[in-house]
Design a protein around this nucleic acid. Structure first.
Length: 277
DNA sequence: ATCCAGGCTCCTG
DNA sequence: CAGGAGCATGGA
């Protein structure tokens, strides 16, 4: 599989310095002073690779975010603050590549999450490179080049809708051809990056917001059209019905500056066993 | 069968 | 710019 968490240890295969590597991250320290230990499991590690791995992990785990302001915000929003108390110290995780976030968002459009995971697994297992370690196979997420080489029709038997298949292949081609530089969007003002994303076929407001927060590390995105977020917010705030998109945006207003965390924790509250109630 | 799911595009007012 | 029709696909 793609991401593996076992006994609190996170492992994942990904491309580092142009080569497939198997990364391991262990948590340490405490909420006030978190510490992450990073290792590459599949062979010797040069200093450059170690630096690259550390930078990647720092970005994905947002270790530079100082979460202290969240506590104060939580006091001003008691219902949400209760959720915040259960997840204190958790960081709004960023995916290793914005391309993966983009494809994952498109997969997730208008289908239930269980089926979305199924589609992603199929994509990864069919088209991702693999690394073997410790008798196990680890898959990398497919590269844009690999997906660009597909005919959208090849995805149809894998249960992708025609529209998803077309969007994914088209976008992969834009990346592979160098017409779209997703990482570079991270350096633009968020409003500009959002405009670029929405201009892509198959990418609407929800997908753009998702990619900004989960792929590019934007800290203030709230994909308020998300049904899951609306359901979670309805529960957290004890509402009769789930909030509409504008209502959820209004709820998120006071979390300005931290709305990606706001969203991430709401999603997290839906995970079985995460104390969602 | 019916409704829904981590929406999008395109077309109207 | 806001709102809505139509669309696509499998799961419960």
């Amino acid at each position: 599989m793609l991401d593996q968490v076992e006994d609190g240890v996170y492992r994942r295969a990904l491309e580092l310095g142009g080569r497939p590597r198997l990364l391991e991250v262990r948590g340490g320290g405490d909420v006030e002073q978190p510490r992450l230990e990073v290792r590459l499991l599949d062979g010797p590690t040069g200093p450059d690779e170690l630096v690259a791995a550390a930078e990647l992990v720092a970005r994905c785990f947002r270790i530079d975010d100082d979460l202290a302001p969240l506590d104060a915000l939580g006091l001003a929003d008691p219902a949400y603050g209760a959720l915040l108390g259960r997840v204190r110290g958790l960081r709004a995780l960023v995916m290793p590549s914005p391309f993966e976030a983009l494809v994952w968002a498109i997969i997730g459009q208008q289908i239930n999450i269980t089926f979305a995971y199924k589609l992603k697994r199929v994509l990864v297992e069919q088209f991702g490179r693999t690394i073997e370690h410790g008798g196990r196979i680890f898959h990398l997420f497919p590269t844009a080049e690999r997906l660009a080489a597909l005919d959208p029709a090849e995805l149809r038997p894998l249960q992708f809708s025609g529209q998803k298949a077309r969007s994914i292949v088209e976008l992969a081609r834009l990346l592979a051809d160098g017409q779209l530089d997703l990482p570079a969007l991270g350096a633009l003002p968020v409003a500009e990056a959002r405009a670029v994303l929405i201009g892509l076929r198959g990418v609407g407001r929800w997908t753009a917001e998702y990619v900004l927060m989960r792929g590019l590390g934007a800290r203030d995105e709230l994909p308020a059209a998300d049904v899951g977020l609306q359901i979670a917010a309805g529960r957290v705030y004890g509402l009769e019905r789930r909030p509409t998109e504008p209502e959820l945006r209004a709820l998120g207003e006071r979390w300005a500056g931290w709305r990606s965390y706001y969203a991430f924790y709401l999603w997290f509250s839906l995970v079985p066993g995460a104390g969602a109630g």
